[in-house]
Amino acid sequence: MVLQRLAALTCCLAALVALSSAGSLRGQGGQAQQGVVKRLAGNGVPTLQSIGQAVLTQDYTVEQLRRFRRADGSVVTVRELLQVQSNNTFQPQSALTFLGVEGEPSGSPLSQEWQQTYARYSSVLVRNGSFQVRDLSRAGNNYTLHDFGQVLRAGRIARRMVVFPNTVDKAIWVVDVDGLTNVPLFVAEFDNQLKLFAEIEAVNFSGGVQNMSPAASMQAVTPVADFAAGSAFLGGPAGLVDPDILAVVADYGLDSVEVYQDPLNGREKLVMNYTDGIDQFMVVQTVNVSDPFGSLPGSSANVIGRFRDPALSALVFWDDDVTFHVAGRGALRRLDDVASRIYRQALSQ
């Protein structure tokens, strides 16, 4: 059994290296050189700790290409500028600026649409849309790190690492880590079928930050300490639920709690992010919302709406003027149980 798992792991890692080197989303040859499978040894090999702690001290500016794989299978490549200014915490100041859509003229309808998306969700893309070591202890328990040797990325020497999960319902990451700063210069996310879901590729990297002006997000995001603080911030609405879900997702823990206030529609949300060290899912509770299933026939039943594809799992339900969303990666089917438990908690209140 152990030998079979080791053989499967080796084959999977070799396939990942081949796919990443080919730059499968682009369909073109990448700038990275082929790596060689090696054991973890020697100086200069990043660890989860060194990657996670890079945000504590590193200031940098990187121009990168972020590739979105749409639900219809098409790929949209967006050029963006990421500026990070450390503050000796794990939440450094950052600014994500939209530069353009590859292949689209500036000012085109598609380009404007994406510009508005970045204006509204830039902070979400920074915090939830890239590879980060969010909890070192949990990451060490839930993932293994494999070194695939030196590569060249954005004109810099980097180390290709594969972050492999201990369970099959999580993503596999290929990360090219900058040799000097331990900042990820290339990130590719695969599922256990080796389907590529996301890719971020640095094209220009420089240390330091100049003229950083954090883009004013159209959503006001306020970090709070915990659920109680978030509930108090929102005025203590009766329908909010403090999720009791660790029995279902014991490898995850609460990472952050934030309150979102959207000036466009006045909606207020309590967003609770859970992490296993690298992967994330979120529980979003939007207050003062009518029942989205109220007009459906048979709406007296307790209904959870579920959207699932290989990239995304999203579950939605409603109780007592609060809409609940549970969202995470497509392979994490345990989110069905998470949603059921939270719904039962809400119904019992």
Partner: peptide, 11 residues
Amino acid sequence: PDVPFAVVRYG
């Protein structure tokens, strides 16, 4: 549904 995670995935 309209959740931040969907934006991260699909833009």
